[in-house]
Simulated scan of single mutants.
Amino acid sequence: MALGNHSTILEFVLLGLSADPHIQALLFVLFLGIYILTLTGNLLILLVTRSDPQLHTPMYFFLSHLSFLDFCFFSATVPKLLENLLSQRKTISVEGCLTQVFFGFGTAGMEACLLSVMAYDRYVAICHPLLYGQMMSSQLCKGLVWGSWAFINIFPAMNLDFCRDDSIPHYSCGLPSLFHLSCSDTTINLIVLLFSSALHALGTCLLIFFSYARIVSTILNIISSAGRSKTFSTCYSHLTAVLLFYGSGILRYLMPTSGSPLELVFSVQYSMVTPLVNPLIYSLKNNEVKAAVRRTLKKYLQY
């Protein structure tokens, strides 16, 4: 990551969620609990999908990478938030701020790609079940995943110089905040950000929409109501994760970076709630995952 020349300002002040020490203590306990649950859930999904042979399928291969993305994104922002909730000076270095931008913006793009790949996987499984093994080969799955990882785009955050106010009205760093604080000409950066984000979002949304349009059409053609219910349940968890990710992401990035309570609530939902509930969505609504968790825990507890 190119850090550019940032010698004028060496650190930023994160104004956080509240200046009240009592509220900060309550938020620390709340976010610490969320942090532990999120790490436990995503690490458990990673462990189960990698160690249980019955989950060595494309769907769970993609799910393991989704859990790893949530793990990286969450670990880049929440520990610093917990530290600032307990400290008097709520600061973050320029390098640390750009690291949060890298993981926040980069993993969001990768997760959008990965969710569209998972939607395509469900489309093949439901609409072309007899050709599933052929269409979703191991090489194709690995290529799709590495293609998602290749979409890391942090060019809008590179080569920015900061010499203005060092206060960020947020608990973490984001690209809009850095643009406001930069004394460089950010016109090109904004154009690149808008173009890449629009292209990225449009491409992934179209693939997800196409996949689920075909899935719904196939489900409606199933005569048996029990068959329709069973088929829909196979993609219910993924559809829930898609709606939660895009819904919270749109609310987060369409709101101006002003530090308003509503904007902070949407940010918490996007950066904390989504990584927390993804493992719950895929485990509580999936009998295969629940059975694999029981088998894995039983195997490791025996040792």
Results as ranks from 00 to 15, higher is better:
D121L: 03
G16R: 06
M118W: 04
K299D: 00
S138G: 03
L297R: 01
N287H: 07
V101H: 01
F28S: 14
I92S: 00
D70G: 07
L82S: 01
S75M: 04
T57M: 01
L15G: 05
S225F: 12
S116E: 04
A226K: 08
Q54E: 09
G143I: 13
F155C: 10
S229D: 15
L10N: 08
H238L: 11
A119I: 02
I191L: 14
M272Y: 12
Y35H: 14
L3C: 06
S64D: 12
L140P: 04
S172Q: 15
C235E: 08
G109I: 11
V273D: 02
V48A: 04
H65V: 12
C173H: 09
V48C: 11
N84S: 04
Q88G: 09
L55K: 07
V242C: 05
S283W: 03
V117N: 08
L55N: 05
G147Y: 02
K230R: 13
M158G: 02
H56F: 03
V192Q: 07
C205Y: 09
F155M: 09
L81Q: 05
M158Y: 10
C163A: 11
A76I: 06
L251R: 11
T231F: 06
F245S: 05
L69A: 05
L199R: 03
I126E: 10
N287C: 02
G174P: 00
F12Q: 10
D20R: 08
I34P: 05
S233D: 12
L202Q: 10
H6F: 08
I36E: 05
L178S: 02
A157R: 04
M59V: 10
A213K: 14
L175Y: 04
V293C: 06
L199M: 03
N287Y: 07
H238M: 03
P275W: 11
S177V: 14
I23V: 10
L98S: 02
C141R: 06
Q88K: 09
T8F: 09
V216E: 15
L37N: 08
S267L: 05
L193R: 09
I215W: 06
I281W: 15
M118T: 05
L140V: 12
